[in-house]
Amino acid sequence: MAQGTKEYSVPALEKAIAILNALAASELSISDLHSQLKLPKTTTFVILNTLEQHEIIRKTPEGKYRLGPGVLRWGNRYFDSMDMVQIARPHLERLVEEKPYTCHLAVLIGDKPVYCDKVEGSGFVRFATMIGQSQPLHQSSVGKALAAGLSDDDIRSLLPDAMDASTGKSIRSIEKFLEEVQFVRENGFAIEDEEFEEGVRCIGAPIRNYTGNIVASLSITALSKDLPAVKFMVIGEEVKQTAALISRDLGYNGGNIRHSVTETKSMGNKP
């Protein structure tokens, strides 16, 4: 268990994890799992059936179970996000250096953006966000930026008809959210103006990989007084350029990338 984590547990989840660990070693039948893990057959069957529905495991023609493609998707997303964190970190640090902003890096997991890195700027305010935390797709700039890589139909399928509203400025309709996503597609950055929390604004931008697909997004978060509306376009361009530099480092060749002063100096006289 991770250091500092309280010893809470969910029995059914503990059993499912035990089953997955056993299947990671070899293909096993229900009887094998029952004998090896000392689990009731009924419980084992219910857990296996649930895991199979989500493609986390698969049943072989011989009646045994093995890990499924769902596990591979998790693994690939984990490794992709870890590589991305290492690549993106220097760019995030430069973006918020000597500025009262906090920078977040996020990936889309299911229907929500999830933070996979966070860099604090020089401001006195520290936002209570953390790596692994998810944000609403329609109430976050990282969510809007990630949604720009989806089709409108896919976006509709991810959002409920009755959308949660955290503040008076929250987006309440799918059509309005689609307008915000179109703004990202046309301008390259997203604005979240006190839609999730009053007094807090964010500007985000999509990050692309070598195929041109949007695989992540970054954002700066600030108090409204430190990010006035008159600066949206200027700061938006800075955030967009940072996302473009990260995209370049991930192998993306498209887009107009302008090097920052700091990076240009570090490149010396390279052509």
Rank of each mutant, 00 (worst) to 15 (best):
F196Q: 14
F189D: 04
G199V: 12
E186S: 13
I203Y: 03
G204M: 11
G204L: 11
E195K: 04
E197H: 10
E194T: 10
E180S: 13
E180C: 13
R201I: 09
N187Q: 13
E186F: 01
A205I: 09
I207T: 02
N209Y: 04
E186C: 01
D193R: 15
E197G: 00
N209I: 01
G199F: 12
R208M: 03
V181R: 01
A205C: 10
E180L: 03
F196E: 15
E197L: 12
D193S: 14
E186G: 01
N187W: 02
L178R: 09
V181Y: 08
A190I: 03
Y210M: 06
N187C: 01
R208C: 04
I191C: 11
I203M: 08
N209T: 04
E192W: 00
G204Q: 11
P206I: 11
V184T: 06
V184G: 05
A205M: 10
E194L: 01
E186N: 13
R208Y: 01
E180T: 05
V184I: 12
N187E: 12
F196A: 13
G204R: 06
G188I: 03
A190W: 00
P206N: 07
C202R: 10
Y210P: 00
L178N: 08
R185C: 05
D193M: 11
F196N: 15
R185G: 02
V184E: 07
R208N: 00
R201M: 09
V200H: 05
I191F: 11
Y210V: 03
V200Q: 03
P206M: 10
F177K: 05
R185T: 11
E198Y: 10
V200D: 02
Y210E: 14
E197Y: 02
F177C: 01
Y210N: 13
E197M: 12
R185F: 03
P206E: 07
G188F: 08
E198P: 00
R185N: 06
E192N: 14
L178Y: 04
E198N: 15
P206Q: 12
I191L: 15
L178D: 05
R185P: 07
P206A: 08
E180P: 00
V184L: 06
V184A: 09
I191E: 09
N187P: 00
E197Q: 12
E192Y: 01
A190P: 00
V184K: 09
Y210R: 14
E198C: 00
F183Y: 15
V200L: 11
A205N: 11
E195L: 06
V184M: 10
I191G: 01
V200A: 04
I207L: 02
G199H: 10
E180K: 14
E179L: 14
E198G: 14
E180F: 05
A190L: 06
V184Y: 07
F183M: 08
F189M: 04
R201S: 14
F196M: 15
D193H: 13
E194W: 07
G204F: 09
C202P: 10
A205V: 04
C202Q: 12
A205S: 15
I207D: 02
I207N: 02
I207G: 02
V181I: 11
G204C: 11
G188H: 03
F177L: 07
G204H: 10
G188A: 03
L178K: 03
Q182R: 15
V200I: 15
F189H: 08
N209W: 08
P206C: 11
P206Y: 08
F196I: 05
N209Q: 07
F196K: 13
N187T: 13
E179C: 10
E192F: 00
